[in-house]
Design a protein around this nucleic acid. Structure first.
Lengths: 246, 246
DNA sequence: ATGCCTATTATCGTATACAATCTAGTGATT
DNA sequence: AATCACTAGATTGTATACGATAATAGGCAT
């Protein structure tokens, strides 16, 4: 069987790999490519990631693909089922709630920690990200939509990076990536036009050194994202929907 | 070259593997064995984990060993250097500080979250862990010492588990494991006789539902652990020490 | 037509093989 | 004596091969 449906989504359109002469692709490269594809929702939750098919796309053996999939499994973006294969994670409603619960717990901590290291240049960098995000909001097309999703996460990650704490940053990496998966599954609106202005207000508060307000806004922001999800206890149709949508 | 120095420390003494008939060892098994060895400080930071040697110990091929080492690398317990091999992590002073800084940020959050789910049975479970810990404190010998180290971490992990949040729990898993590594490297006293009574007071506070005090005690506890470390900027001897100690 | 059983095929799990890279040791040169 | 160059050995990186497991399809009985 061939890659069942547009597996080529895995590749960024500007980066054809087949017949690439200087082709030094390693496991990390593959891992990043798959993660980007998942986070930008080019790969739907539940999609099977066959070792052969992925390897074929990148012109590498299963060995490297396995390494990449194993790493992604550790990040919670991929589920590896023994003797069955790897699938793009398909978080349950309980997991979805847990991911957002953890964000509500961690983001204020991150924000306060970041605030201690934020000065003029950091604010400037955040403003640039916000500008990017806003520009994408106004553009049309699927590609802009994907970029917007990524940009929205990047704001949170940039703040995490400003803590200067690599561990904290990595925890946030995981949470943001998995959130994207949850939104892909349970999101209702195309979201984030509201999300953007909220980011802006958070940065405004940071600029005023008003960390308490920034934290409150952050919590509201997370609440709004979660409110846009349909986390009701699985109208049984979800099973059917999977069968068809896939 | 053979396993340079008592590589057999990797194996738990009660679990001989060679010539084991029902020998269904997988990557996870190896990963756990190595992690336990690191956390219980049977393997010194910086030790090279040769794929051949480890594979030989478990009677498996390099394939499984590589998978295990890769997973451990993601947890921060092992550093994999390209084309050079895997080494038990040897956290720098900066990393050590970061690990404890992150614990100071996270543990209060974890504690408050856990407190919401803690009732009589949870307190009872913690008391049991404390009893174990105290018993080990009084026992003599290296094996009791190792068990004590593990027991001390288990108290923190049990609390994390009581949050009911698997993600948070995993974050704490990583932090506690890496802390053990830092203590192995920079610890001065054999520690933890003080640590135990501090755990006890934290649980006491939890039992009284006095979460604020529990958090304060937790922060003091972490401070005490860190205070026992020698995190001065590297008397250059550390390089020499490696050469000899290994 | 439905359900159960078996044979086939595809995919994964692990070991092995070979190529690329690093390390150590030897000897020549300054 | 110290440094550099080079070769031999060991170790890792990646591909491939083979056995094990699970999904699939076809035949038979009900």
């Amino acid at each position: 069987m061939f890659a069942p449906f547009g597996f080529a989504r895995l590749m960024t359109s500007t980066n054809p790999v087949s017949a690439d002469p200087a082709n030094d692709i390693d496991a990390q490269h593959i891992r990043d490519a798959i993660r980007d594809a998942i986070v930008e929702r080019r790969l739907a939750p539940g999609t099977k990631l066959s070792e052969n098919d992925v390897g074929g796309l990148f012109n590498v053996s299963r060995t490297l693909v396995r390494a990449a999939l194993q790493a992604l499994s550790y990040e919670g973006l991929v589920n590896v089922e023994k003797n069955r294969g790897a699938f793009v994670a398909h978080p349950s409603i309980a997991e979805a709630r847990q991911i957002f619960a953890t964000r509500r717990l961690l983001e204020p901590v991150v924000l306060r920690e970041a605030a201690r290291h934020i000065g003029k240049p950091e604010i400037k960098r955040l403003r640039l990200l916000l500008a990017d995000e806003e520009r994408l909001t106004r553009e049309r097309g699927a590609s802009a939509r994907r970029a917007e999703i990524k940009a929205s996460g990047d704001v949170h990650l940039a703040i995490a990076e400003m803590t200067g704490n690599a561990i904290l940053k990595r925890f946030m990496d995981e949470l943001v990536a998995r959130s994207s998966l949850v939104i892909a599954l349970y999101g209702q609106s195309v979201v984030s036009s509201c999300g953007h202005s909220e980011h802006q207000r958070i940065v405004d508060a940071l600029e005023r050194n008003d960390v308490d307000t920034a934290c409150e806004l952050m919590l509201e922001h997370i609440d709004h994202i979660e409110a846009d999800l349909d986390l009701r206890p699985a109208t049984k149709s979800s099973n059917l929907k999977d069968a068809f949508g896939l």
